[in-house]
């Protein structure tokens, strides 16, 4: 069954996991997201950048106790895209 209607940005295991996590919280640090998704730091950085380029998340870089800190939060566009993705997904899931 083709899944053409599904947003290709969200239709990826790690990016979908990140957005699903961020939709439940106000903001989360990079290390927390990495822990929750079991992703490698390199892969997660790449996928976060893709989500940021799509306008789905905001990434804020700062310093905490002299250590760099990356905080992510979902944007309104991200919430809208996630909502649309779930609605489209429901069309493929037939009730048993």
């Amino acid at each position: 069954m083709p899944l053409n209607d599904l947003d290709p940005i969200l239709h990826s295991q790690l990016r979908l996991a990140v957005v699903s996590l961020l939709i439940s919280v106000k903001e989360a640090e990079f290390t927390h997201i990495r822990g929750q998704t079991n992703a490698t730091a390199g892969n997660l950085s790449v996928q976060l950048q893709k989500l940021k380029d799509a306008g789905y998340i905001e990434i804020e870089k700062s310093f905490k106790d002299n250590y760099p800190q990356t905080t992510c939060r979902i944007t309104k566009a991200g919430i809208q895209a996630f909502d649309t993705y779930v609605q489209n997904l429901q069309q493929y899931i037939k009730p048993k």
């Binding site: 899944l3 599904l6 239709h11 990826s12 295991q13 790690l14 979908l16 996991a17 699903s20 996590l21 939709i23 439940s24 929750q36 998704t37 079991n38 992703a39 892969n43 993705y85 779930v86 997904l89 493929y92 899931i93």
Partner: peptide, 21 residues
């Protein structure tokens, strides 16, 4: 977590799992 083709059930499982967590 690896990149792979997802079917709708897998997508839903990821969403449910992360939100529940």
């Amino acid at each position: 977590m690896q990149e792979q083709n997802l079917n709708p059930e897998e997508s839903l499982q990821i969403i449910q799992g992360m939100i529940r967590r």
